[in-house]
Amino acid sequence: MTDFQFSEEQRDCLQELVNVAMGLASDKLARYLNTLVHLQVPAIKLVKTEQLPEHFADRHQQQSVTMISLGFFGDQGLRGETIMLYQLENVGVIAKLLGYSDDDSSEAEMLTDISSVLTTTFLNGLAEQLDNSFSYAAPRILSSRDKHFAEKLASTAEQWQLALQVDIRYQLTDYSFNCDMILLIPGEAVLRLRLILDQILASF
């Protein structure tokens, strides 16, 4: 069996790249929303995909969660899927932030919009760090107000070998919300990513 583990140096390197990517994303968001986005260090964790459902079941116990997935493809075999998890009580806050209060957009439409803004700005930043560029598939709602969300997450996660779990907290001047972002990366892309990280590490 191939070992998809990361060394501490590789993990640190990835964390820093994520950090810089978040910086780029929040700068764009701040300019777009005309406010300050306070960023906390995104805690990134590499987890086995089979552990994900358990982790999120603990975390989102008794709360309705909406899951939105967005696939991305880059050069050199880099590809993956991001999953954003929102707690529904957050949705109103996020909507207000993005100026969705006064028209006929459905909740589903709003959530896919927000997810694509948050994930593509972040992933564009990450691609820049990796000297790559990503293209994106349209976001999909995997479940909404769904009790069996853990099962759905499990069946989605099964197809991937590695999950990079990034907890993001966006805090704006008047509002704050948090959401979880999970980056799911298939095995061959994990190997590719490690090669790129090693190249970066070797140059310092």
């Binding site: 810089v20 990517a21 978040m22 910086g23 780029l24 701040a30 300050l36 960023l39």
Partner: peptide
């Protein structure tokens, strides 16, 4: 030296007495 390059943040840092702000990396 930071990745948090929002103009507001750069302004705040300078107000707190930093000499300069450099974007990461």
């Amino acid at each position: 030296v930071s990745a948090d390059i929002q103009p507001e943040m750069q302004k705040r840092v300078m107000e707190l007495g930093a000499l300069a702000f450099i974007q990461k990396p």
